[in-house]
């Protein structure tokens, strides 16, 4: 088996169809508060009050499920790709193996929740951006991009879904999201701890990892999926992020990046509307 497994080769059964983040970004269609949709929605945040709430929650749940599969695969690759001791500490690999078990459970949970919500495996396209962030040649960058950026996003998503379940009175959704949330906080923390430990005497490597993290954050925030603006579907869960080891400055930066991405998306949408026939 090769070291460093390319994202294009991720193995899936016949039900799944994958798209890269570039393909996703090439889709200029809107799902937010524009045109006719504005009338139907007062906020873009995912709450049961939204007319499309059920389908939006199902689609998000499917996105979570495939994200969990990729998180599992990414953590697994970090166990294998690096020489223990020379390229990655033994204890870091133990953490990644632990993460494999956690992510495997998260897949199990998400599959059950998807069934509960009436979604079939592979019903929606799979975006492979998470695993793409786990393909870095530097384990520290993987931890920054996946554990700190993307799993940080998972915290925001799970918080939103948990609230959704509580508001709708869904007994399973809130229960499961709460459990997954606990695990994800641990994973983000792993990222924070190892980033600090490994780059303690290597400011250049640390800077690079942090830059990578912010790029991943920006890519994923494209579309204004998450920001502290009310127009964003996913609330940035500040408290959880603090627990996971983010500083106040980092929290504000993520909020800024998310807002900028939302604005970019809005501009792209306006262009689409301006050029399409009335």
């Amino acid at each position: 088996m090769r070291k460093f497994f390319p994202v294009e080769d991720l193995a899936r059964d016949e039900r799944f169809n994958q798209a890269t983040n570039a393909e996703r970004m090439a889709d200029t269609r809107g799902t937010s508060n524009t045109g006719v949709i504005r009338k139907a929605r007062s906020t873009n945040r995912l709450t049961p009050a939204r007319p499309d709430a059920t389908d939006a929650a199902r689609s998000l749940m499917h996105g979570i499920m495939v994200g969990e599969i990729q998180a599992l695969e990414g953590a697994g690759r970090t166990c294998f790709d690096f020489v223990t001791g020379e390229e990655a500490p033994f204890e870091l690999k133990l953490d990644m193996a632990r993460q494999c078990w956690d992510e495997a459970r998260h897949v199990e949970i998400s599959v059950k929740l998807s069934e509960w919500m009436g979604t079939e495996l592979g019903q929606f396209v799979e975006n492979t951006v998470l695993f793409a962030a786990a393909c870095s040649q530097d384990p520290v960058l993987r931890l920054a991009g996946v554990n700190r950026a993307l799993e940080g996003l998972a915290i925001d998503v799970f918080t939103t879904m948990k609230e959704f379940g509580e508001l709708a009175g869904d007994p399973y959704l809130a229960f499961c999201e709460d459990w997954m949330l606990a695990d994800e906080v641990t994973h983000v923390k792993m990222g924070s701890v190892w980033l600090r430990k490994i780059t303690e005497n290597d400011p250049e490597r640390r800077a690079k990892a942090l830059e990578f993290q912010s790029v991943v954050d920006k890519i994923f925030s494209y579309g204004g999926l998450r920001s502290e603006s009310d127009e964003s579907p996913i609330l940035l869960a500040r408290r959880f992020r603090e627990l996971a080891g983010f500083s106040d400055g980092e929290l504000s930066e993520i909020a800024d990046v998310s807002l900028a991405a939302l604005n970019e998306r809005r501009e792209a949408l306006e262009k689409t509307f301006a050029t399409s026939p009335a």
């Binding site: 088996m1 497994f5 294998f80 990644m96």
Partner: peptide, 23 residues
């Protein structure tokens, strides 16, 4: 290590999940 590495390479989802747990 090899169990972790194989997770991404197997298409069968039940096998994928077992490898992750056993890893």
């Amino acid at each position: 290590e090899v169990l972790g590495g194989w997770i991404a390479t197997v298409p069968e989802i039940d096998v994928k999940l077992r490898l992750g747990t056993h890893c």
